[in-house]
Design a protein around this nucleic acid. Structure first.
Lengths: 141, 141
DNA sequence: AATATTTAGTTAGTCGGCTAACTAAAATTA
DNA sequence: TAATTTTAGTTAGCCGACTAACTAAATATT
């Protein structure tokens, strides 16, 4: 199944994601975060007070998933959930001091992960990889 | 944070893995499998009757994770767990008919995922991508 | 105005993944 | 041989992710 041909890109992706995720988790743990919470905080840093639905779309996650996630992050004082005054169906999520603090560490963690992943690659290789991954991303979308 | 530079490979990887995983899950569901169970079955197809520890190493997973996974897959009649007669600590895992049947679908699913992911890429681009991902994988190992 | 439909989130239940703490058996070592 | 250490798996508890079924509120329709 794996002779001289280019090899399975899927398998490589699975392995890379597993390793990347493990590394990310251990780093995020030092910031008191769990896997995926970094992304939620990031989107709030771009725009605070977003609705749950808006976050769902940006993170590409299910309503059910983010719902419990938000509850846990609120319990951890990272964020705050508040009902919208006009539309009582919607909830808006706001960053809390502890969330902002974690966020500053998240940036470093992301930079470190990126640096480790691309160690030894030339700028051209980096660009090429990004381009090719863009194509793959488009194919899967 | 994201100007004209090559862009974050990490972000691309995260998005790709999320989409790939979703596609994989829906396909695997048609074979009666859950995420990750395909890989376990594959390794058993390479060598049946492996110990739990051997599978742990090959799949790069935690003992605890595979333990419950095996129980569930045994309950689903995909595999069978048997205590080794010589060393009573170890358990050996064997493919069951239902597992073999699912396996035949897994091959097709993997091929389809690979094809979808690489649609539109030339052979050169495919090779290049695999090479670059190999470098990233090595960096993360 | 009353009914139906769409939209926003939540809850229950399942699965993969992890860590930490544990049992049991084999292999070392004193 | 008896005590210690290592090895193999399990269990409990947590988190992210999903589907399916649900509540509640706003909007559309009749």
């Amino acid at each position: 199944m794996n002779g001289q041909n280019p090899g399975s890109v899927s398998k490589l992706l699975v392995q890379i994601c597993k390793l990347r995720r493990n590394k990310s988790n251990t780093l995020l743990a030092t910031a008191g975060l769990h896997s995926g919470q970094d992304i939620l905080l990031y989107h709030l840093s771009v725009e605070d007070g977003q609705t749950v639905s808006a976050l769902v779309e940006k993170i590409c996650i299910q309503h059910a998933t983010i719902s419990t996630m938000i509850d846990r992050m609120e319990a951890a004082a990272l964020i705050r959930k508040e009902k919208d005054s006009l539309d009582k169906r919607v909830s808006r999520i706001y960053l809390m001091p502890k969330g902002k603090e974690a966020l500053s560490q998240v940036v470093h963690i992301w930079n470190e992960l990126e640096a480790v992943s691309l160690k030894g690659l030339t700028t051209d290789q980096h660009s090429l990889l990004a381009e090719l991954l863009q194509l793959v991303l488009k194919n899967l979308s």
